[in-house]
Structures are given as C-alpha cells and as structure tokens.
Design a protein around this nucleic acid. Structure first.
Length: 888
RNA sequence: AGGCACGUAGCUCAGGGGGAGAGCACCACCUUGACGCGGUGGGGGUCCGGGGUUCAAAUCCCCGCGUGCCUACCA
C-alpha cells in the first residue's frame, strides 16, 4: 500500500535526509574505470574565505544539472570539487584578525603566520563546501582538492620549473602595479579603474640651450621628479623645430632630452608628454626604445625617494601639493584644467595603485596565448555563447606578460634560490642544499609567493593527479565543459587554456559555457557596499532548494543578466508543490496496484497521446540541456508537467481510476500512470533533486535512487500523430464548451446540454468515444451527436476546426439559462477576432508576389487558414442572425 | 573614446523572416475527494523610433533615442 503524502510539500524535512543518503551510498563518486563514456566538469574553486553568494548558487546549480543529467544518461560523470587558497584575500582576512589581537604578521614571523593561516583554514575554510551541499551539488567529495595541498603544490612546482627552463618564466625589471597598502605587486587584471575627478596640470619645461619652454600636461605632477625625457609625436608640426633639443627639468634642473615617439597623441594636452620610465607603463616602453634611464622617485610605501631631492620622505599626495606650490612660485605652472580620468585601485583594499618599476617574476605570455587563440579559432574549444569570442581574441592578442610574483606570505613560495657565494640563480625540482655551480651551501630562497591564479591555471589537470600519470587524468582530460561567469574569463579561463595547451598539449575543456551575472531586482550588481546582497541560503530556507534551483535554471537565459525576482521563485515553489500533489494523487490511486502483474491491454487514445507528447518533451529537454539552454529546458518541463500531465492527463484519467472501474482496466491505467510519472520525475531530477528522490522512493517497485535510474530517452516509435490530433479535437471541444458556459455565466455547479454537429462521421466517432470525459470535464448532462440538424435559435454556438480536417459545431441550448444579448455580445467578440485574422490572411493571398515566391507549404497553409476562418466565421454569422430574430 | 549586449503585455522576461508567447499581476466564476502554493474562463501589445532588404520584418541591415555592462595608457 503506497504511503500517502502530506498536502503541502515541506522541503526542510526532506533535503538533508537525501543528501546524507546520496553521500553514504557513494552516488557522487566517479568510477574512472573507463567502462562508460567520461564526462567531467571541474568546479571553479571557491575561495576558502568565501561564503555562498548568488553567483556561486547559479554557477553550481547549472553544473549540477549538467552532471546529474549526464550521470543518468549513462556517463561516468565526475564533478571535481575543491577550493582555492586565495592568496591576498586570505592573507588579508588573517591579518585583520591579528590586528584585532593587537599584533601583526611581522611580529609573528613568516613561519608562524603561515601556520596561523592553515589553522584558520581548518576552522572556517570549509564553510562554503557545506553550503554547496545544501544546494544539492553532487560533487565527488572523495576527490576534493585544495590549491595548496601536497599534490597541487607539486604540480605548481613542476610547471614553474618547466616554464623557467623553457625561458617562459623570467625575472626582470618591469613596470608593475604596486599596491602601497598591501605592499605587493598586482597583475594588470587585479587593478580596478575608477573614474576620478582630478586636474590636468600644464607645466612649463624650459629649454636648456635657448630661450623658451615646452609645456607638458600631466595628472601626476609629483612624478616629474622621475622624468628622464619629454616626448612629442614625430609628425607634430608644432614641435618640428625642437627635435633634438634639451630641456631643464623644473625644480631639479636636470637636463633631459626632447625625443619623438609615435605613441604620443598630439591632440591630448599640449601634445608633449613627460616621460617617467619608473612610474608609468608607456613611459617605460618609450624609455626602452630610447635607452633612457629610469629614476625611481617613489618607494614601495608610497613615499618619495632620495631622487626626489628635498621632497624625500614625503607621502606621494603631500608631495604633489608641495610641488605644485613650488612650480607656481617659479612661474612654471601654466594652468590647471578639470580632468576626469580612470585611476587604478587595488581590487582587494581599494588603495590607489602606483605603477612602479620593480624586479618581479613574469610569465612570457605571448608564446602561450597563441595556441589558445588557435584552439578557439579552429573550434577545438568552443565558447558558448559565441559572442564572447570577440572579446577573447581582443584580449588574447593584446595580452602583456603576466606578473606572477606577490610580496605576501600565503601562497606557493617561488622555488628559486640565489647562491650567496657566486650569485647563481637555481630553480630546481627538489629543494637544493648546495650550489650546483660553486658548491657553496649558502643559498637564499626567493621570499615572494606566486599569484593565486598561477595554481588555479593548472586546476583542470592538477586536480586529476598531474604530474603523475593517473587513470583519472587519462580518462577525464580534456574535461567536457567549464561553467563560469564572464568576470573570470580572463583571470582564470584564458590562463587555464594557455597552461593546459602548453603543459598537457591539449585544451583543458572542450566547451566553456559562460552564464550571466546575477543582479538584484533593479538590475544592480550585488555588492556588500550597496547592501543589496540577497543570500541564497535564505531563499533556500524560505522556498526550498528545489524551487530555488529550478528558478535559477529558468532565469539562466543566455547572454542576459539575471534580475532575481522573488515573485518568480514563489511561482516555481508552487510548481514544486504541483509536482508533489500530482504524485500525491497518483499514490492515492495505487492502493491496489501490483507492479509485478502482467498487463496485456493496448494503450488508449488518451494514453497514446500522453506517451507521444512525452517523447517530444524528452527530445526537447535533452536538446536544450545539450545546448545549455537551461531556461528553455525548465520551461518545457514546467509547461508539460503542469498543463498537459496535470491539467489534462490526470483529469482524463480520473474516471478510469474511479471506484467501480474494471480491475483489469484500472490496473492498466495505473501502470501507465506510474510510468509517465516516473519519466517526469527523472526528467526533473537534475533541476529538483530532492523532491524527485523523495517521491521516487514511494513509487511502487522503485529501488535504489533516482540518481541511478536512466534519464528518459525518446522513442520515436511512440510518436502518435493520430492520437495527438484526436485529443486535440477533444480538448478543443471541452474548452469551447467551458468557454460558452463561463461567458454565459452558467454556474459551474449546473450541468448543460450540448449538441455536436459535424459532416465528418470520423469526428463524431472520435468525440463519441470520449463522451464520458467530455461530460465530466465540460460538465455536460445531455450530449448528442448528429451529422446535421436544425439547432434551436436560442442557443450559444461555437465552431471547432479539427486538427486533421473537418469542422465541428457545438450548440448549447440556452432555454431558461440566460438572455440572448449576452450570447450576441460573445459572438461579436469572437467574430471580430476572426475577422481581423481573416483580413490579414486575405491580404496575403491577394498578393501575387506572395503566391509566386513564397514556399508552397506556406501558401497552402495560408489557404487552409483562409478556408477555416471563412467557414468558422460564416457559421457564427448565420447563428448570430438567427439569434437576432429572437431578440427582435 | 572604443567594444558588446539589451529595449516585446502593468511587472519580470522567453521567442527570433511567414498565425504575437510564458510566469506573475488583473477581471469573473468555483469549498469539483491530488493541490486555494489550487481549478475554469477572460481582458490586455504601434514587439523603442525612423529608414532599408524581402513576396513577407517583432525577427535581418543601417541610422537615431534610451538603458546596462566591459575594455582603455590618452599623460
């Protein structure tokens, strides 16, 4: 005897139970035995400092849908989970804790500090993992990795050494972005540009060997102290006479050359650019072309150096004020203009970033970028949606060398040693004890650590066991798809592509599905500072995880950002409840059902229709899933489940299941009902894993888990166009009667009589065979079928065109029911609608070009439409005429 | 400055060359033995504006307006 469910689905009770069950049964574990086709997704590893936000929720829901689908579809599906050590972010978190305790990392020392971070990680670094479990993520937790665990650190070491040996990693002086607050270099991507109001200062640089001066424009006058040239565009006519001249640097009096460089834009400012190689990227590049010296005027703490002369030791912003004052005094400040420009800020601490020349480690990225560009060009790696390819190519072709050293402590320490005796730099696979050149034992290791993204770039193969040759690596690399938002496309995805292609010789994933960003209901990006964060955990508490997941999937239309609307989540919560109640109804009618009993009855037309529709829904759902059209998959399942399975199939079934139905027929009905419900549950499982598992276990004959049940596959032999046409006719007829009733204000409780006229015997036959359903669903008492007849004038009338040809008149005698004016109004509304449609079709068919040039099937479809409309309209018109005689 | 999206029902959004769609909201009716987180029926649209291509444009192209995002060294 099947258990009866509660009236309203209560997610809280159910969810934890099944997650525990799945884990205990090992259902998330990939086998990696090669027995089934592999399918693999590596998770974008969340930061250990993180907690689940909307972006994670969407990202991981989509991945889980894919993984659960592929697993049920017969793949050995591996969802590789793990977390990222998040160098700067984590170090900042722990440093803030230390500050509260009144100490700092320098007091602790490097070793103790790192131990402290590990301890913090052990205590609170796993919070997000539990939140992912709440979401239902079916990651293979037995394989969980961490970017700083032993194996991944070995991968980092190996890649670093290899690239160094290949000359693709080098240490050099270069302009980097320096955060004076974090005291570390930042990669270009880690700098956020914010429009800032400031001034453009016009400063006169006197000529050294003749009268006059050249005026330069700058936003950072304090960098003047590091100028080693002034540059103009070689073609700028204003300065032709000055080519080769020398200038006196204001205040310091240093003699600097006037040079020409095509980089200089004549239209900006005065067309003359002060060149500060140590504190500006482009100036640095100009300096390299001209072999100019670099003078460092600013130090790592943002204070002026001794090269700044009397300004030494001043803060950069104080120095700016002083210099302006002095320039004014000397009459060298020509003018100031308001100027708004983008100022770089540290993405971690918001401090103003200072471009600065510095000795750092770099990856020569051009060599690595080229194969990644080619891989996308030739389709070995697909970006979905394709629109991202343009941005990708733009970025990859303009990419600069990647600064990978960070002056922090938490991370992979750069495996480079310098021999104090002979100066030799060693980058070995094993920690060295003596210098291989001179044999000295006095080796000092590099203190910098690697950029966090260096280890993340190896994620697709390091997590699978590389550098060891593991079965997982052989089976699952390249992985199937990477699911991510575009905001880390370049931080992460591009770098994985470069590293994967270089180290593994193949793309890290065949496809990248780039989903939208989740915004608040007003379309704003969610951020702590705006205070518009919506916590996914709260929504899960409120509406249940299944409803939340289904909503995210339904929101995930490609190429458009998501505005999270709680109202829509409520809508999908209702859908989840609908699924629950449809199952409840089913189970309530299975009391006497014996799944083992044979059933030789053929499918009824209703059943054939349902089965046929199911095949189409399966095809559509699978198609949408394969194309990453999550919203469409969700929509198809929603419409089918609610408006076909529940609204029609279950309603049509009720009489078959009622008391007094023949046991054999009843059993047959039950069997198909269970089958269809089972398919619906399996189709929905990837979207709503918890409720489907709960119901699954209550279905007769169900065993194990819905996770191990096969995903429905469409069987084309079950398509049944005739059943669909027949049921289409029946449903249209029922709707037409309901419509007349409602428009005539016939109370739902009272029964009506209906006459059905048709010249087509087949139509009447079909309807006759469904008369019990029609009576029940349209609430009809006396139902008569006739080829034609003299219907009473006092009647409401509707015309239905059968999907496979022929027409049907539905007549509802009104005697004693209501006044005829109402019916006349209803008819006029209906006829208006038809006339408008008819006019459009007539216009089209009157066009000779249309007849001549449009495809034949389009023309014949329009002709058929015209005929149908005409027929329907004339029938309604004649009825209206007769009705009018009654009114007169 | 450049690039990329987007503008469809009151709201949130699908669709994407041949009959304007969904959900919510709205109106009317309904204690129908699965479900009121429900049922039945209904109203509602110059598909931003203007040109063009086409037999046919909400859909493709161009221009404009509006919105959002990304990139950039304009000192």
């Amino acid at each position: 005897m099947a258990e009866i469910l509660e009236k309203v689905y209560d997610p809280q009770r159910i969810e934890a139970k099944w997650y525990t069950f799945w884990e205990a049964q090992g259902l998330f574990s990939a086998r990696a035995d090669g027995a089934r086709p592999p399918y693999c997704i590596v998770i974008p590893p969340p930061n250990i400092t993180g907690s689940l936000h909307m972006g994670h929720a969407l990202n991981n829901t989509l991945q889980d849908i894919l993984i659960r689908y592929q697993r049920m579809a017969g793949c050995d599906a591996l969802w590789m989970p793990g977390t990222d050590h998040a160098g700067i972010a984590t170090q900042n978190v722990v440093e803030r804790m230390l500050a509260k305790e009144g100490t700092d990392r320098h007091h602790l020392g490097r070793q103790a500090f790192i131990e402290r971070v590990w301890r913090w990680k052990a205590e609170s670094g796993g919070a997000i993992i539990n939140q992912l479990k709440r979401l239902g993520c079916s990651c293979d937790w037995s394989r969980e990795r961490f970017t700083m665990d032993e194996g991944l650190s070995r991968a980092v070491r190996e890649v670093f050494v290899r690239l160094y040996e290949e000359g693709l990693i080098y240490k050099g002086d270069y302009i980097i972005n320096w955060c004076p607050r974090c005291q570390t270099a930042l990669a270009d991507l880690e700098v956020e540009h914010e429009p800032t109001d400031g001034y453009l200062y016009f400063i006169k640089y006197p000529l050294a060997d003749r009268e006059g001066f050249i005026t330069v424009a700058t936003t950072r006058p304090e960098t003047l102290l590091g100028d080693t040239a002034v540059a103009v565009n070689p073609d700028d006519p204003r300065y032709l006479a000055y080519h080769g001249a020398s200038l006196r640097l204001p205040i310091l009096g240093r003699k600097i050359p006037l040079i020409t460089d095509p980089h200089v834009a004549p239209e900006f400012g005065t067309g003359a650019l002060k060149v500060t190689p140590a504190h500006d990227l482009h100036d640095f590049e100009i300096a390299q072309r001209w072999h100019l010296p670099a003078v460092k005027a600013l130090d790592e703490e943002g204070l002026m150096t001794e090269a700044a002369g009397k300004y030494q030791g001043l803060d950069r912003f104080t120095c700016r004020e002083k210099i302006l004052k002095d320039l004014k005094h000397d009459g060298l400040l020509e003018k100031m203009e308001h100027h708004s420009h983008a100022v770089g800020h540290c993405y971690r601490c918001r401090a103003v970033v200072e471009p600065m020349i510095s000795k750092q480690w770099f990856v020569a990225v051009k060599t690595l970028a080229e194969p990644a560009i080619v891989a996308v060009e030739d389709g070995r790696l697909k970006l979905i949606p394709e629109a991202w390819e343009k941005s990708f190519f733009d970025w990859m072709t303009n990419i600069r060398d990647w600064c990978i050293s960070r002056q922090i402590w938490w991370g992979h320490r750069i495996p480079a040693w310098t021999c104090q005796a002979c100066g030799q730099v060693i980058v070995p696979r094993q920690d060295p004890s003596t210098c291989p050149v001179c044999g000295a034992a006095d080796l000092v290791q590099e203190t910098d650590v690697l950029d966090t993204w260096f280890s993340s770039a190896l994620w697709p193969f390091s997590t699978l066991g590389w550098p060891d040759d593991t079965p997982e690596l052989r089976l699952f690399y390249p992985t199937s798809v990477l699911v991510t938002a575009f905001d880390i496309l370049f931080f992460w995805v591009a770098r994985m592509m470069m590293m994967g292609l270089h180290v593994m010789g193949d793309v890290p994933f065949r496809e990248v599905y780039i989903h939208a960003l989740v915004r608040d209901p007003e379309g704003q990006k969610m951020s702590k500072s705006k205070g518009n964060i919506i916590d996914p955990l709260e929504l899960m508490d409120k509406y249940g995880t299944d409803a939340f997941r289904f909503s995210l999937a339904a929101f995930a239309a490609m190429g458009r950002d998501i505005r999270l609307s709680e109202e829509r989540i409520i809508g999908y919560r209702n859908f989840v409840n609908k699924v629950w109640n449809a199952s409840r109804f089913t189970l309530m009618n299975l009391g006497d059902y014996d799944p083992g009993r044979a059933d030789a009855l053929p499918l009824s037309m209703v059943e054939s229709w349902m089965v046929s529709r199911l095949q189409q829904v399966i095809t559509e759902t699978v198609g949408h899933l394969k194309a990453y059209d999550f919203d469409q998959a969700a929509h198809v399942l929603y419409q089918f489940t609610w408006h076909e399975f529940c609204d029609w199939y279950l309603e049509l079934l009720k009489p078959e299941l009622a008391e007094g139905a023949a046991p054999v027929a009843r059993h047959h009905t039950q069997r198909l009902l269970v089958e269809v419900l089972s398919a619906v549950l399996r189709l929905l499982h990837p979207f709503m894993p918890f409720i489907t598992e709960e119901i699954w276990h209550k279905l007769p004959g169900a065993k194990e888990s819905i996770m191990t049940a096969p995903y429905p596959a469409a069987d084309p032999s079950l398509n049944h166009p005739a059943a669909e046409a027949e049921m289409g006719l029946v449903m249209q007829s029922i709707v037409a009667v309901r419509n007349m009733r409602a428009e005539m204000n016939v109370p739902p409780a009272s029964l009506v009589n209906i006459l059905m006229y048709s010249q087509e015997p087949a139509i009447l036959d079909k309807l006759q065979s469904h008369q019990r359903a029609i009576r029940l669903l349209a609430r009809v008492q006396d139902l008569q079928f006739q080829p034609e007849g003299e219907p009473p004038a006092a009647a409401a009338k509707a015309v239905v065109m059968a999907p496979d040809g022929g027409s049907l008149d539905l007549i509802m005698p009104l005697t004693g029911l209501i006044d005829y004016k109402e019916e006349a109004r209803r008819l006029n509304r209906e006829m208006d609608k038809l006339s408008r449609e008819l006019a459009g079709v007539q216009k089209k068919l009157a066009n000779e070009d249309f007849l001549a040039k449009a495809p034949e099937e389009v023309v014949s479809r329009e002709k058929e439409r015209l005929q149908n409309l005409n027929e329907k309209l004339s029938k309604l018109k004649s009825h209206e005429k007769r009705l009018k005689t009654l009114l007169a």
